[in-house]
Amino acid sequence: MKKNLFLLLFLIVVVALLFHFKPLNKTVNYIAKGVVSKPRLINKDSLTIRSRVNLPKGFKRVNYAKGSFQNYLRNYKLKPYGTKIINYDNSQYYWQKGHIGILDITVPKNGLQQCADALIRIRSEYLWDNNRKDEIGFNFTSGHYCSWKKFAEGYRPIINGNKVTFKKTASVDYTKSNFYKYLNLIYMYSGTLSLSQELEEITEVKDLKIGDMLILGGSPGHIVMLGDEAINSKGEKLFLLFQGNTPAQSVHLVKNLENINISPWYNLKMNAVIPVSNFTFYNSKFARFK
């Protein structure tokens, strides 16, 4: 009897943690919404973020220049509709009802590319592809800055507790394969906590744009990126969101399970409670890559 009771309590705790301490009735509602929700704004045959999702009535997309980070994200390639979220070990993620698209980005088998790491990679690949490689660099959680330029020149971190120094211990290597080795290093020593400390904070909804991030810095923390943006005649904005996750898994464009009438668009607010798929941001904060 005691063994059965212990098992029951264990399962309840696991469910609570998976849904970030949502009340049980809300967890059931989320599962139900994910099952029955059939977003009317979806183009199942389309293979980019922009073309996959139609606009709600009265809204138009905000224009961004060709070559901008915003335009890059909006036109990011998606895998065919219905593609499942896959973990780094090639297993299927347990929650398949909260997304409407998978971004065409590989999931390394080492398990390092988690939520913040996936967005770091997308930002870094944009800078790489647009000949802005010297701008690629991120802080470790310790606060020490690690740039792709110095890594390519052969400098490696020597880490002793919270003390980090850099020493030239490798040959010069500017290749793409070495670039991904650099990203693996960043994945190991950076995350939502370091990003929350180094990124530019956005304090008003009207200033939000594609590429900005909704962030909770910590261990654990979470982060999602704004993948598209629309506006109406009143100046009201809607956004699409995508995320990586823990464990490392497919980067995916999420549904809005709170408002299925505009899903997958989100009406974001400052300092609000914002549920995103199976995670809830409390007292929401937004940030931007510099």
Rank of each mutant, 00 (worst) to 15 (best):
Y94H: 11
I102D: 10
I100E: 12
F21C: 15
L17Q: 11
Y94R: 09
L103V: 05
L18H: 12
V36K: 07
T106S: 14
N162L: 13
W95S: 10
I100Q: 09
G227L: 13
E198S: 12
G111A: 01
L208G: 04
D173T: 07
K168E: 13
T141W: 07
A272C: 08
K133T: 15
Q96I: 02
K150F: 12
S51V: 03
R74M: 15
I210V: 14
L199G: 01
Q114E: 06
P264R: 04
K150D: 15
L47W: 11
G218H: 08
R50E: 14
K22W: 14
L119E: 04
C146W: 13
N162G: 08
T165R: 12
T106C: 07
S196G: 12
L240M: 08
Y182I: 10
N75C: 08
S277V: 09
A118Y: 00
F10P: 01
N271E: 14
A116M: 03
T169W: 11
S233A: 15
G218E: 13
I49Q: 03
V205L: 06
A152K: 03
E258D: 15
N43L: 08
K109S: 05
P23I: 11
K33H: 12
K3H: 12
L112K: 04
S233E: 14
K66F: 15
P247C: 00
K33R: 13
G217N: 03
N90V: 01
I49W: 04
S171G: 08
T165I: 14
E153K: 07
V14T: 12
K26G: 06
L47S: 06
S68C: 05
C115Y: 00
N261W: 13
N43A: 04
T192H: 00
A272P: 01
Y88Q: 00
G154W: 02
L185W: 10
H20L: 14
G111S: 03
Y64H: 13
M225Y: 05
F179T: 07
K150C: 01
S194K: 03
Q113P: 08
L257C: 07
V107C: 02
S147D: 08
K269C: 05
E135K: 07
L119P: 00
D104M: 04
N261E: 15
G161I: 05
W148P: 01
L241D: 03
S177F: 08
I159F: 07
R288K: 04
G137S: 06
N271V: 09
L226F: 10
M188L: 14
L241R: 01
G161H: 06
S277H: 13
I120D: 00
V13H: 09
K149Q: 15
L112A: 06
